[in-house]
Nucleic acid binder design. Structure first.
Lengths: 138, 138
DNA sequence: GTATTTGCAAATACTTTGCAAAACC
DNA sequence: GGTTTTGCAAAGTATTTGCAAATAC
């Protein structure tokens, strides 16, 4: 149900793939496929949304990028594949990184309590971003 | 973008709503709308999937239940509205509670680093459930 | 030259919505 | 009795897929 088997398939280097990855990797927040498509279209006007979806899927299967889900109807993508925590603004919806150390100890606690073999964890914070709370207090 | 305004609307007590909530609350794992619809149909054969979706939405707006998202294409629902952590089996997809104490200290760290006003956090573990890893070792 | 990838459009999966009839208070 | 809720079917949104032409190696 969960695991994809397409990991480690060799990907050809196409211009579309290269530019999709470049655009994603130079962002500090985490766009949806449609938002990334808009960015990529500025450099490759004929690129299709389907190609963006296909490449984001392949790149996350390869472990080059990661897919994020914040309970919105659409997924978001992160050009940094290393595990790290995220924060989501409840007012504008943006998703940012939280560059704090991971707490692997949580996994030990969870594994004792649940008897699952725990292999990872993710922390999702929610709140109001500096830009949105700045608007109110000014 | 994120907040619904329908909180605190007074809900009438219908038989459908009552049974949907009862069925959800007596589960220890967290079903999708379709799975819950199947359960509810055993007691109310003519209930529609639309009604299940509408009630799950209303009940989570009221804070009676919570909506969960594990990056699957469908949402899951939890009859327990109190914040707690969850674990997701990468083999069979089931989602269980992790009844461990919350770590509110994480929010302090995140708020210093991000300058967000943090109002909550959720931890999602992933791994292999006892049933699935039991199958392998037996 | 062969296998992969693309653009396009159609299909799919999940969820939401419009509407008239039924149920609630 | 007026308002909410339901069942049904149709619509909506995000994503995936089939296919022939184009591209990569």
């Amino acid at each position: 149900m969960m695991q994809t088997e397409s990991r480690h398939k060799i990907l050809r280097q196409t211009n579309q793939r290269k530019i999709i990855l470049e655009e994603l990797q130079c962002l500090t927040c985490h766009p949806t496929a449609a938002a990334l498509h808009d960015l990529v279209k500025k450099r490759l006007p004929r690129v299709s949304l389907g190609t963006v979806y296909r490449n984001l899927e392949l790149l996350s299967d390869c472990g080059t990028i990661q897919k994020l889900d914040f309970g919105e109807p659409h997924k978001r993508f992160d050009g940094n594949p290393t595990p790290h925590y995220h924060v989501n603004c409840q007012q504008c919806g943006r998703v940012d990184d939280v560059p704090m150390p991971l707490h692997p100890i949580l996994e030990d606690e969870a594994s004792i309590i649940t008897h699952y073999q725990i292999s990872g964890h993710h922390v999702a914070f929610s709140g109001v971003c500096p830009h949105c709370h700045g608007k109110k207090s000014d």
